[in-house]
């Protein structure tokens, strides 16, 4: 019943649908990438360097003669995976910390939330650079770094919902039936915090993709020849005057994916947050 209603709401919400279509488009592209990309993404072709868009290379070629369309398609797989993994890395510990912090309050809350405050005091990109610098530049470390950076955001969101949820009568009722604290936290309070988590995780996918691209751009993320969008953008920067397509297409791809997640996330918030109805 409830799920069906939510789907109907979703169809009515134009923003969410636009976002969903963008995400689905890129997701399908990522899934069928190997079968539709016209050229192998990693094989250089020194004769056709920095060629503009043409029939054989619709997005042109880069400084090593690699087909940019193929690289963008392969890059979509990397970016979506980065988004998913980075969000999971921040979501799971963030949610657990937020649940414990909000529920127990005081002695548990103070150390956790002050720790989160310290993490929030650093600009996100600076903290991510710091973490990748320690772990060493690689795609995996990018995901870990971006994931860690956003833990406090989830912790805060979950904590604030827990603060109001734990005062509700049903918590008292479960306790009066003999439920333990852990049961109350994970079986009764947690399911109620899922809607805000879904909204924030969707928006967070966009942010994570952007952050990962930024790290790639700075050379701290995926290493060549991986077709990561941020790294491609960074490489294209050198040729921006003579061959702007090298940077433009990966840039547009990042833009589309992030826009898709942001629109979808905003739409979901409208649907799931009853106070905005």
């Amino acid at each position: 019943m409830e799920k069906v209603e939510a789907l109907v709401e979703l169809k009515k919400n134009k923003t969410a649908m636009a976002g969903l279509i963008l995400i689905c488009f890129l997701l399908i592209l990522a899934l069928i990438g190997p079968w539709i990309s016209p050229h192998p993404p990693l094989v250089p072709d020194p004769i056709n360097r920095l060629k503009g868009p043409s029939w054989s290379h619709p997005f042109g070629t880069d400084s090593l003669g690699r087909d940019i369309l193929s690289r963008v398609i392969y890059g979509s797989r990397i970016s979506i995976i980065i988004g998913l993994i980075a969000v999971s890395i921040s979501l799971v510990p963030g949610t657990i910390l937020g649940l414990l912090s909000g529920f127990y309050g005081r002695k548990v809350d103070e150390p956790i939330m002050r720790g989160m405050d310290i993490m929030l005091a650093f600009p996100a990109i600076l903290l991510a650079i710091f973490i990748t610098a320690i772990l060493g530049p690689s795609l995996l470390n990018t995901m870990i770094a971006v994931g860690i950076v956003y833990i406090p955001h989830y912790a805060r969101i979950v904590r604030s919902s827990v603060l109001s949820l734990k005062e509700q009568l049903f918590v008292q009722a479960v306790r009066s039936l003999g439920g333990s604290n852990l049961r109350i936290i994970f079986l009764h309070i947690f399911p109620n915090t899922i809607p805000p988590i879904i909204v924030y995780a969707t928006l967070g996918m966009g942010t994570a993709v952007l952050q990962a691209a930024a790290l790639g751009f700075l050379g701290l993320g995926a290493q060549p020849p991986t077709p990561e969008w941020g790294a491609m953008l960074s490489e294209g920067r050198q040729y921006i005057q003579n061959a702007p397509h090298v940077a433009a297409f990966p840039g547009i791809a990042i833009f589309m994916l992030v826009l898709g997640f942001n629109l979808f996330g905003d739409g979901l918030r409208d649907i799931l947050d009853p106070s905005l109805r």
């Binding site: 509700q168 009568l169 049903f170 008292q172 009722a173 479960v174 306790r175 009066s176 039936l177 003999g178 439920g179 333990s180 009764h188 399911p191 109620n192 899922i194």
Partner: peptide, 24 residues
């Protein structure tokens, strides 16, 4: 107490609208 609550002594509350978990 956890073994007694709900088993030997149970309680019903004033507000039936909020004493059940809305998502279960």
């Amino acid at each position: 107490m956890r073994k007694i609550r709900g088993n030997r002594i149970s309680m019903i509350f004033q507000e039936p609208m909020t004493s059940l978990n809305p998502v279960l």
